[in-house]
Design a protein around this nucleic acid. Structure first.
Length: 936
RNA sequence: GCGGAUGUGGCGGAACUGGUAGACGCGCUAGACUUAGGAUCUAGUGCCUUCGGGCGUGGGGGUUCGACUCCCUUCAUCCGCACCA
């Protein structure tokens, strides 16, 4: 023990230093921020975590460290930095655990949050914890509920492109009906003011429901029986739930939805003014899925109804030889002929009961039935058969299409399969016309000339599209239209652990609670399961009704509800009269830098933008886009190790020799391996079955194989930050996570490399200390070399942080410390600025050194050093001299050397003779301060 | 199928607007100090080489005095979306 203590005090003692400064920061509220109009604001945000039971692994803090470094850096530059943290506390795992064990999810969540906080604190983050939010806290979700009520009370006016109040809409209805209203609405039946006044309240409420931005409707939902709830589109992957991987079915249910589709165009346009990765913007563009085309009305032979279709290729109308309706299409029942009824009903039944998985896996299976009805092609009056087939989706467009087999590959396959005529209407410029039935596939491209197409024959495709739309609009048979793939967000979950809706029911119609009754707190229940009759868990709550006795909504809100506006609440987290004050919002405005994983590209990041835009329309927030700059940090992958078991034996062969045996690779815990060398004794003790394992070694060692994989328990490659921080300290850990590689790329975690960074830390410490670890800094004037090292480093570090190149900053620190060590420099004039320079990364050590240097208070607000070009400037430059582009030697020349003098010097240099080979230089390339190239 | 990203030593990666490819670190080799070293320090380390030099940034082609960087083409890996009319 005595020896250990001596050893520790001999050198850099991260344990003591880090504990000391973490306490200091906490006691002094060093990172507490308030509005300060004398300073410019800067808002750095991390995507807040769901506190899972497993705690943090090495991959989680990567983004937090980067954002912390940036926050600290900005603080040094004099910004008032808002850098908060909180928890996305509602979530399925705690609820699943509650179902299994009866433990209230709040208990589990609280426990996990404590653990998260402890782990986060160890890393030394500069969060303002006074601003912490938890989405499951009634003080927080009061405002989630409040926003829902605002959505309920709003509609989207397409004329003003704004969310507006339902009360005002009602006034308009009373005055003039809805004929002049252009709304993003689910139904567009026209009524007059008189009609409106004739309706009873229920009817009026039903009409209004079609306009509300939060509305209740019968929708096809992704139902997950295992989880007992519906899921949003982005929560479903390949027909399985994203969380848990359970199968998902389509089901018709009454659900709350948010009319996010009203904002599709603005969500698309907004991408232009924000600084995000193009790849992420592209993901959002795809998700919004804008396509331009036309809606065309087809009348039905023998019926009054019409079928509306959406097409991006109205030019190919003359090639439409049949129509297809989705199995869910409402007209099917009406138009199906007597003779076809049985078959069509059977088909619809089959299609509706087909699981999502089957649909996906059997994409190439061609199925469908003829309905017996005919649609009339508006351009030429021809009757074309109407089919039903599930390759047409009810959720997109109108759920009905015109099929142009010659120019759409799905229609082509369908027509070939069912022997429906195919008419070519577009040809390539020099194409010989052939029978489409002999083609391998349709011709889908948007270029070529129109043929067989009435008045557009001979036109190019794009012109044909334009002309057809004009014609359709003139005849009132259709119109140009933009369609979006983005669907309204289903907002109900049949779950317990979520925000209750501030909604009660009167005569079956939903009404919002009065705002004074918020928050509507989550009630206790006896079990976290649905009721026997299939009602959501909240139906089990006693007295789940208003004071007046009206029943309350039993669904709860989805995970993305609480996370859609949390960045706003951080601006003014204690406010109990408003979501946030006007003052706070006009000061903090928006997030300047947002860091998080790219898995939120189509979920959270779309919902949050929508949420923000809505509040912007209400005039509550001052910026339309909430996240000015966004960086997706890459995932840290695991590096797994393998041992090779000889088949049928308890014998393991080292990697290099495994080819000589028949082996099976087994994951081995990375804790038992160092440098890919297995600790065979530890391995024997790892598991009873390996107790008498035998080993075939190479060079006396057992070498393991390795592979980069996802970090997971089952692969035994999880690296937990706690152990690393205990061993190397938070500063080393912070630097190493950054040193690993560029922030945005995925990279494997290498257990070894951290040693190198730790060595750097100790070397840095030693700059300020003598051999006995006594603090020793000289007051001598720095020399030129020392100043050059310092100022070069300042320049590079600033430049690299500014461009988010967090990894190269660490390299620059290392170079600087290596050079100062070589120069044996321990001068205050150099080390003091260096300490500040290091502070964003090695924050604890910087504080300690700063106080050892004799300063009071925290280093965190000390001005960041600026480089002085004078100290960097050189009088000469060592020009690399190339011959035909190959660098051969260097020549020192004055900085202001002229081209002629340079040429003389180079050609006069004896080293040149060899490379000239007696030839004349054809050209002499001279780029000042870059390079000299001689072309022979 | 569509879209996106990535490809540089044994490994992680540097090279910011075309200008010395391989910074920095790991690992490895040799040496020093040491009872010892998984501590520390020093030197070396892209590949090939007849020691002159040659070859090198996934492959092929192009632009250029000069290409990891720009253009075309091709391959590989990873990640999204996926019957979207």
């Amino acid at each position: 023990m005595q020896i250990l203590i001596t050893m520790q005090t001999m050198d850099y003692n991260h344990r003591e230093i880090e504990k000391k400064w973490q306490k200091y920061w906490k006691d002094n509220k060093t990172f507490h921020v308030d509005i300060d109009h004398d300073k410019p604001k800067f808002y750095v945000l991390d995507m807040f975590p769901y506190p899972s039971g497993a705690g943090l692994h090495v991959g989680h803090p990567l983004g937090y460290i980067a954002s912390d470094i940036f926050s600290r850096y900005k603080r040094h530059l004099g910004f008032n930095v808002l850098h908060p943290m909180g928890y996305d506390a509602y979530g399925l795992p705690a609820e699943q655990y509650a179902i299994q064990t009866g433990t209230h999810p709040a208990v589990t969540t609280e426990k996990n949050i404590k653990r998260y906080r402890q782990q986060l604190d160890q890393i030394g983050f500069s969060y303002d914890w006074d601003r912490e939010v938890q989405t499951c806290d009634p003080k927080y979700y009061k405002w989630t509920q409040w926003t829902f009520i605002q959505l309920f009370k709003s509609w989207y006016n397409k004329k003003s492109n704004n969310a507006e109040s339902i009360d005002a809409l009602i006034k308009t209805f009373e005055r003039e009906g809805n004929r002049n209203i252009e709304a993003a609405a689910s139904q567009e039946e026209v009524f007059t003011a008189d009609d409106w006044k004739q309706m009873d309240e229920k009817q009026q409420q039903e009409i209004l429901m079609h306009y509300r931005l939060a509305y209740l409707s019968d929708t096809m939902v992704n139902w997950c029986p295992e989880l007992g709830t519906v899921l949003a589109n982005d929560e479903v992957k390949d027909g399985f739930s994203e969380r848990g991987g359970h199968p998902v079915e389509r089901k018709r249910m009454k659900q709350w939805s948010l009319r996010i589709s009203a904002y599709a165009q603005r969500l698309l346009d907004g991408l232009e003014k924000i600084d995000w990765f193009d790849s992420l913007k592209e993901v959002q563009r795809n998700w919004i899925g804008r396509s331009e085309g036309a809606s065309v009305m087809f009348s039905i032979d023998g019926f009054d109804e019409t079928i509306e279709v959406f097409t991006t290729r109205p030019d190919t109308l003359w090639g439409a030889t049949f129509m297809v309706l989705a199995p869910e299409h409402e007209l099917l029942e009406k138009i199906t002929g007597k003779d076809q009824k049985e078959k069509v009903e059977k088909y619809i039944h089959w299609a509706k009961n087909r699981s999502e998985r089957d649909r996906i896996s059997e994409v190439n299976k061609i199925t469908g039935e003829f309905t017996g009805a005919y649609g009339i092609n508006p351009v030429n009056g021809e009757a074309i058969p109407i089919w039903v087939a599930d390759y047409v989706l009810s959720g997109y467009g109108t759920g009905a299409i015109m099929a142009v087999p010659a120019h759409d590959s799905r229609d082509f396959k369908f027509a070939m399969h069912f022997d429906i005529p195919i008419i070519q209407v577009v040809k390539q410029e020099n194409e010989e016309i052939s029978d489409p039935r002999t083609w391998e596939d349709s011709y889908d491209a948007r270029d070529g000339l129109m043929i067989n197409s009435g008045f557009i024959t001979g036109k190019a495709v794009e012109e044909g599209i334009k002309a057809t739309i004009e014609w359709l609009e003139e005849k009132e048979l259709g119109e140009g239209k933009v369609n979006y793939r983005l669907r309204d967000a289903i907002f109900s979950r049949q779950r317990y652990w979520g925000e209750p809706f501030p909604i009660y029911y009167k005569e079956g119609m939903p009404y919002p609670l009065d705002e004074s009754e918020l928050p509507l707190e989550l009630p206790d229940v006896d079990k976290y399961l649905p009721t026997e009759s299939g009602e959501p868990p909240l139906a089990r709550a006693k007295d789940w009704q208003t004071k007046e006795g009206y029943p309350l909504e039993t669904n709860t809100m989805p995970g993305f509800a609480g996370s859609s506006g949390y960045y706003l609440r951080y601006m003014d987290p204690q406010n109990d009269r408003a979501y946030f004050s006007k003052e706070a919002n006009t000061y903090w405005k928006d997030v300047d830098l947002y860091l998080g994983g790219d898995e939120h590209g189509t979920g959270h990041l779309i919902y949050a933008r929508f949420w923000n835009m809505f509040l912007y329309d209400l005039g509550l927030v001052c910026e339309e886009e909430p996240f000015k700059k966004l960086i997706n940090q890459g995932k840290i992958q695991g590096r797994s190790n393998f041992v090779y078991r000889v088949e049928g034996r308890n014998q393991f062969v080292s990697k290099g020799l495994r080819k000589e045996y028949n082996t099976t690779p087994l994951h081995v815990d990375i804790k038992l391996v160092e440098n890919d060398v297995l600790d065979v004794e530890a391995f024997r003790q790892w598991r009873p079955e390996f107790a008498d394992a035998e080993f075939i070694l190479e060079d006396g060692k057992y070498i393991c194989g390795w592979e980069v994989e996802k970090m997971s328990k089952s692969k035994h490659n999880v690296q937990n930050p706690d152990e690393l921080i205990e061993k190397y300290g938070a500063d080393t850990f912070r630097c190493y996570e950054m040193f690993l590689g560029p922030l945005e790329t995925h990279k494997p975690w290498d257990t070894q490399g951290i040693e190198g960074v730790y060595r750097f830390m100790k070397k840095l410490w030693r700059l300020y200390h003598d051999k006995e670890n006594n603090f020793l800094v000289s007051e001598d004037k720095p020399n030129k070399d020392e100043l050059k090292v310092l100022h070069n480093t300042i320049k590079k570090v600033r430049n690299d942080i500014e461009r988010y190149s967090f990894n190269t900053v660490v390299s620059n620190y290392m170079i600087c410390v290596n050079e100062l060590t070589d120069l044996k420099c321990n001068k205050r004039a150099i080390l003091e600025p260096l300490t500040v320079l290091l502070s964003p990364y090695a924050s604890h050590m910087a504080e300690e050194l700063w106080s050892l240097l004799g300063h009071e208070g925290s280093i965190s607000e000390v001005e960041f050093p600026e480089h002085n070009e004078e100290f960097i400037r050189e009088n000469t430059f060592a020009y690399p001299v190339s011959f035909n582009g190959k660098m051969r030697f260097k020549i020192e020349l004055p900085l202001d050397v002229s081209k002629d003098d340079a040429e003389k010097a180079v050609l006069g240099d004896e080293r040149s003779e060899k490379y000239m080979g007696g030839k004349q230089a054809k050209r002499f390339i001279f780029v000042p301060k870059k390079i000299i190239n001689i072309v022979l």
